[in-house]
């Protein structure tokens, strides 16, 4: 399968990179919410699995860049690790369907769920995702038309859906409500952003009253997760602050002195 070989290629490129160890450390830190200097521990986990985990925890490229940026800023070698982060981001770009859409303009005639390219959602241990995707979907479906909810999210994330455009319809069919909601969380950093975007888009879709109703339902369903989201990000910051105490003391020949890495509050 194309997606698999692409993933293998990314893994290979990162494994063969001169900074392979630092790359793995950075990815490991994001995935496991813990800094690891112990080479044995790092070697015990396959890079491929970490990359899959990284992609699940960061459903968009923006999200990934944000996670990398945030972590790098807390390390005591931010310059070196910023370069490492760039290498990761550059390779990971290829694994995000959106970036491929831009470069290849592929329009699938047969709506195959694109998220099959991801390793399936693991749900219970994603460090940055602070809501249950199933519960959110149920809350929305209980109170509004699922398709209108999708159209609203699509219109906020991409562009106002054009009903007369066959391509827009086909494109909508390749997107899962789940994935669209995730992108919506990502796009709307605060509850105010969400409210503003939903209202604006609903006003521009016809019939407005139907979309205003759907917007209200989406807003109400997503509202409570904003608080969770903020507290989870706080936890991530906390782990970075605390990892000093977890250092195993194992020496790292390549990254001499890194085990003394100090964390500055960002």
């Amino acid at each position: 399968m194309k997606a698999l070989s692409l993933l293998d290629e990314v893994v290979k490129n990162l494994e063969e990179h001169q900074n392979a160890l630092r790359i793995k450390k950075l990815i490991y830190a994001i995935c496991k919410s813990k800094w690891e200097n112990d080479a044995n521990q790092l070697n015990s986990i396959k890079l491929k699995e970490l990359i899959q985990e990284l992609q699940i925890a960061n459903p968009t490229l923006d999200y990934l860049n944000h996670s990398l940026d945030k972590l790098v800023k807390t390390l005591n070698k931010p310059m070196e690790y910023a370069l490492v982060a760039d290498v990761i981001a550059e390779q990971m770009t290829r694994l995000y369907p959106d970036s491929q859409e831009v470069t290849q303009q592929v329009v699938k005639s047969n709506p195959v769920p694109q998220s099959l390219e991801y390793k399936p959602n693991l749900g219970w241990d994603e460090p940055l995702i602070s809501y249950d995707t199933f519960e959110l979907r149920v809350e929305i479906m209980k109170y509004t038309n699922p398709l209108r909810a999708k159209i609203l999210a699509y219109s906020i994330i991409y562009h106002l859906l054009d009903f007369s455009c066959q391509q827009d319809w086909l494109s909508l069919k390749t997107k899962e409500l789940d994935v669209l909601l995730h992108k919506l969380f990502d796009k709307c950093k605060t509850l105010k952003d969400l409210e503003y975007n939903l209202q604006t888009v609903a006003k521009n879709l016809n019939p407005t009253d139907e979309y205003t109703q759907a917007a209200g339902a989406v807003y109400q369903a997503m509202k409570r997760y904003y608080a969770n989201r903020e507290s989870n990000q706080y936890e991530l910051e906390n782990f970075v602050m605390n990892f000093e105490g977890e250092i195993t003391g194992a020496k790292d020949d390549l990254d001499d002195g890194e085990e003394t890495c100090q964390i500055r509050p960002s």
Partner: peptide
């Protein structure tokens, strides 16, 4: 049939 994101509760 295509029941993508349909509500069948």
């Amino acid at each position: 049939a295509n029941l993508l994101d349909a509500n069948l509760m």
